[in-house]
Computed example of a mutant assay.
Amino acid sequence: MVLLKQKPLKEAIDLEPSLASDLKKLRLEQMKNKIRFGSEYSKLNFVFCNPDGLRDRTLNTAFVRTKKKANVPNIRIHDLRHTFVVLSLEAGIPLEQIQHDLGHESISITADTYAHITKKMRKKSKKNFRSTCPITFDKCGQKLFLYSENL
């Protein structure tokens, strides 16, 4: 678990062990640089930064290069947040869990900002409905038959 600073409290989120380990190593390196640079070290607390603590453009540069190689649309790094939410919703992860992962104070912020229904989600919900309440029409589309193994 890693603690993230949020207003007004710190919130713990679950991370993959390898990511948590990498972030801890990065933080240790930054602490060493902070001692080395002393008062010259930036007080902005960037996660990805140069040795002096100032913003590092390397991450964005690598992202741009990776996008070109992968032939993906021209998106910003922050747009990956939206992608994460949509893929999470499509995977059936509850909105409450996504709200927690994003650190939103209220679920309405998450729902209003990110919860769009995709074609994949519509298809999945129709399939789930059919398995819950199987229905069919006769050849003329006239009669409705409900069938269930429990009837």
Results as ranks from 00 to 15, higher is better:
Ala62Ser: 12
Arg55Asp: 05
Asp14Trp: 14
Lys10His: 07
Glu11Thr: 05
Arg55Gly: 15
Glu40Thr: 03
Phe48Trp: 11
Leu15Cys: 15
Lys34His: 02
Leu54His: 09
Arg27Glu: 10
Ser18Phe: 08
Phe63Ser: 08
Leu19Pro: 03
Phe48Tyr: 08
Lys43Trp: 04
Asn45Phe: 01
Ser21Tyr: 08
Arg27Thr: 04
Phe63Ala: 04
Asn45His: 04
Asp14Glu: 15
Glu40Ile: 02
Ser18Gly: 12
Ala62Tyr: 07
Lys24Glu: 15
Leu26Phe: 09
Ala12Tyr: 12
Cys49Ser: 06
Thr58Trp: 09
Phe48Met: 01
Lys43Gln: 15
Phe63Pro: 01
Ala62His: 11
Glu29Val: 06
Tyr41Gln: 04
Leu59Asn: 10
Asp14Met: 15
Arg55Ile: 11
Met31Asp: 13
Glu11Ile: 12
Phe37Leu: 00
Leu59Asp: 12
Lys25Glu: 13
Met31Glu: 15
Ser39Arg: 02
Glu29Gln: 13
Val64His: 13
Pro17Met: 06
Ser18Pro: 02
Phe46Gln: 00
Glu16Met: 13
Phe63Asp: 01
Gly38Leu: 13
Asp52Gln: 04
Pro17Ser: 10
Glu16Cys: 02
Leu19His: 05
Pro17Glu: 11
Arg36Ile: 00
Phe48Gly: 06
Asp56Ala: 06
Asn60Ile: 05
Leu23Cys: 01
Asp52Gly: 00
Gln30Ile: 08
Lys24Thr: 02
Ile35Asp: 12
Lys34Met: 14
Lys25Cys: 14
Tyr41Asn: 11
Ser18His: 15
Ile35Lys: 01
Asp14Phe: 11
Val47Arg: 01
Ala12Gln: 00
Gln30Leu: 11
Ala20Pro: 02
Phe37Val: 04
Phe63Gln: 01
Asp52Asn: 08
Cys49Trp: 08
Met31Ala: 13
Leu19Ser: 13
Lys34Leu: 03
Lys25Thr: 14
Asn60Ser: 14
Phe37Pro: 03
Gln30His: 12
Glu16Tyr: 12
